[in-house]
Design a protein around this nucleic acid. Structure first.
Lengths: 168, 168
DNA sequence: AATTAATTGAAAATTATTCTCAATTAGTTT
DNA sequence: AAACTAATTGAGAATAATTTTCAATTAATT
């Protein structure tokens, strides 16, 4: 089961390490084959990294982590495979401003994102009230809701402090 | 094909050249001064272009359009000014995938979109309650909210009926 | 084991955007 | 209106993220 840890007052989401999926090599192979691709060591390691590692990682970060376990890995392979995974919806890509894209294994449980416009930090949240209101809006216009994208953008606490420090 | 239902008698942004705002040089100067900047020919021409031209233009497109009226304009000036306008919220930046950012003069009235996944029909809506809840979420995580994207996807009434007709 | 088509790493290429810097210009002061 | 000064400019170099190229390697098939 996917377990989303929503720490109240979590200060530094960059550092949170969580295991959201409990996937084995068998699952990874299945995912790769479902996309009509060949099973390779590098693809398995990338998936392993996504499943076990920090949540919203950039391609560069995946490359660096993966490079430890598998030093002959090239970053082009990481980019290529992340793109494929995104196209097939196994991975969700979050983009903000000109900052590097961040990736996560598509969670089974829905959540939305709160992204820092300055440093790209991402906080996940769930809000049942908002979900309900969305349903109401859809109903009002005669729509049967299938999905939605809600991305909030703002300045995180750290970046707010940094700005003030510079001003002084 | 795709039908856009717009609250205030606006036309389809994709197809028509529309004047969302009816702004004069006086307004442009005011905008520039409000940002604490000097009024220059290039800034006026850029604003004019944004106000009169197509909606959702890229920086390159702005540069090309502007270049006709004002050939000595450099693209760095366009980028620089668009950034300033965005920072000051006179312009809204929309980013999609790795594609170049698109810009539009920030509409006076904020709205979100409800899109039919079958026929592409778009309904614009406003919901103050959702907005408020978004603020609350941001606050809870220590963020200072700057903007957001909310896109609802579903099946519109017509398409629901069409599906049922086919099934029968 | 032989075959072949996909995959890989390394480096080059590309794309969007930002930065640098000397020359110009807007707005102010005289 | 001329002088002043700090902001703005254009051109091109620089940067950063991502994609492409291509020859060598490897997974899956025969």
């Amino acid at each position: 089961m996917s377990e989303v840890i929503l720490a109240e007052g979590l200060q530094n989401p960059e550092e949170q390490v969580l295991k959201r999926e409990n996937l084995t090599e068998k699952d990874f192979k299945k995912i790769i084959r479902q996309m009509g691709l060949k099973v390779t060591q590098q693809r398995l390691v990338i998936l392993e990294t996504l499943a076990e590692g920090r949540v919203h990682v950039t391609a560069q970060e995946v490359f660096e982590i993966v490079n430890d376990k598998f030093p002959e890995m090239g970053f082009a392979t990481v980019y290529r495979f992340l793109r494929k995974l995104t196209e097939n919806n196994f991975v969700t890509e979050v983009r903000m401003g000109g900052l590097p894209a961040r990736y996560e294994l598509t969670p089974k449980r829905h959540h939305d994102h709160l992204t820092c416009v300055q440093c790209g930090k991402i906080v996940e949240f769930e809000n049942q009230e908002i979900e309900k209101l969305q349903e109401q809006v859809a109903k009002k216009f005669g729509f049967e809701l299938t999905n939605h994208v809600l991305e909030l953008y703002g300045k995180c606490r750290d970046c707010q402090l940094n700005s003030k420090r510079k001003e002084a």
